[in-house]
Amino acid sequence: MSQTITQETQTPTVPAAHEAPPRGGKLAGRVAFVTGGTRGIGAAISQALARQGATVASGYAGKTERAQDFLHDLQSAWAGHETEFSIHQGNIGNPEDCRRTIAEVIEKHGRLDILVNNAGITRDRVVSKMSDDDWQQVIDVNLSGAFYLSQAALKHMLERGTGRIVNVSSVIGEMGNIGQANYAASKAGLFGLTKTLAREAAFQLARDGKLDDDTIGVTVNAVTPGYVLTEMVQGVPDKVLDKIKGNIPVHRLARPSEIARVVHFLCADESGFITGQVWGVNGGQDM
């Protein structure tokens, strides 16, 4: 296990039923697709969007039984509410799977308002020992996958004139880290992708006459988590955790819900004047 604890989507977490209601309504009527959305930070994001009233489709790569258990627990937690949930399997490193899952969500729920590109992997090795596959697999999933998903989602969003895309990057993309050249490069690449997609979305909406003072528009932003408190941390020695916390100004790890809170804030209609931005949620680690 990497002592860096940077992988945002690695740890399985299923929300308990009592964690669901009460709920807000700022995303009522919206449909969200969260990749890597059945575990770790992705599970927290799925739950947070649902708490704000969104219909939530959660993506996963493998372990179907665990994903189905996650879906069942969400449905049980929101029993009696109108909130809908679904899960969608696919390899984010495969362009066709990216396009297929976007199409599946739109077909099932009738629309797509929010895309959260959260899925990611790590293959940690120092550069001198990193294989071609180690490099390419991480780039394919963490960066190329976000591009293909966003490309498919943007087509739908631009036609409708509204939408939100949030890319989950990492503080490692800003700071780098020994043994994570592939991961750092992929997460840093999301910054350029975010800003370019944001510019292109605004340009195309303006060109098509779909921007005025009353529109919520199509925005694209990024969130950069630092070290996050998930079940993955349970296997890390206390001395290592203490060292990590000592390098974080607030001297603790983030809770998954703290990442999710920023994501659902950026997804709200009222956040339409925020686009092309990178939001750090890392306890001040990058100061």
Rank of each mutant, 00 (worst) to 15 (best):
134 D>V: 11
161 G>F: 01
139 I>L: 13
220 V>K: 04
135 W>M: 09
238 D>I: 07
189 G>D: 10
200 E>Q: 12
163 G>L: 03
239 K>D: 12
209 G>N: 07
168 V>L: 14
237 P>T: 06
242 D>L: 10
230 T>M: 03
168 V>Y: 01
212 D>W: 03
134 D>H: 14
222 A>V: 09
216 I>P: 01
152 A>Q: 08
193 L>H: 07
190 L>Q: 11
142 N>I: 09
236 V>G: 03
178 I>M: 10
161 G>A: 02
132 D>E: 14
173 G>C: 04
172 I>M: 06
165 I>E: 08
240 V>Q: 05
226 G>T: 12
214 D>C: 00
188 A>F: 07
179 G>Q: 02
242 D>C: 01
173 G>K: 07
199 R>V: 10
143 L>Y: 09
203 F>G: 05
158 L>K: 13
247 N>K: 11
242 D>Y: 02
181 A>W: 02
201 A>S: 15
190 L>A: 12
191 F>P: 00
131 S>K: 11
202 A>F: 02
200 E>C: 00
168 V>A: 05
220 V>S: 08
157 M>P: 09
215 T>G: 06
233 V>Q: 09
127 V>W: 11
176 G>Q: 06
239 K>Y: 00
232 M>D: 12
149 L>W: 01
133 D>E: 13
144 S>E: 00
151 Q>W: 12
236 V>P: 02
154 L>R: 04
166 V>C: 14
183 Y>M: 02
196 T>S: 14
241 L>F: 05
126 V>L: 12
193 L>T: 11
221 N>Q: 05
170 S>G: 05
228 V>W: 03
188 A>K: 09
225 P>I: 06
242 D>I: 01
197 L>R: 11
196 T>Y: 04
230 T>S: 03
172 I>S: 04
191 F>T: 14
234 Q>C: 00
235 G>D: 11
243 K>T: 11
246 G>F: 08
166 V>I: 15
168 V>M: 14
244 I>H: 02
169 S>N: 05
126 V>R: 09
248 I>Q: 09
124 D>R: 06
144 S>Y: 04
220 V>N: 01
124 D>T: 06
162 T>I: 07
153 A>L: 02
139 I>P: 01
186 S>L: 05
196 T>R: 08
151 Q>G: 04
233 V>F: 11
159 E>T: 15
150 S>G: 13
146 A>Q: 06
242 D>P: 08
186 S>P: 04
248 I>A: 12
193 L>M: 13
229 L>C: 08
207 R>F: 07
190 L>P: 12
230 T>N: 04
182 N>S: 07
161 G>R: 10
168 V>R: 05
139 I>V: 11
238 D>W: 01
228 V>P: 02
240 V>G: 03
174 E>R: 09
147 F>H: 09
229 L>N: 15
142 N>Q: 10
210 K>N: 07
194 T>D: 04
232 M>L: 13
214 D>S: 12
210 K>S: 01
233 V>I: 15
244 I>D: 05
172 I>V: 15
215 T>L: 00
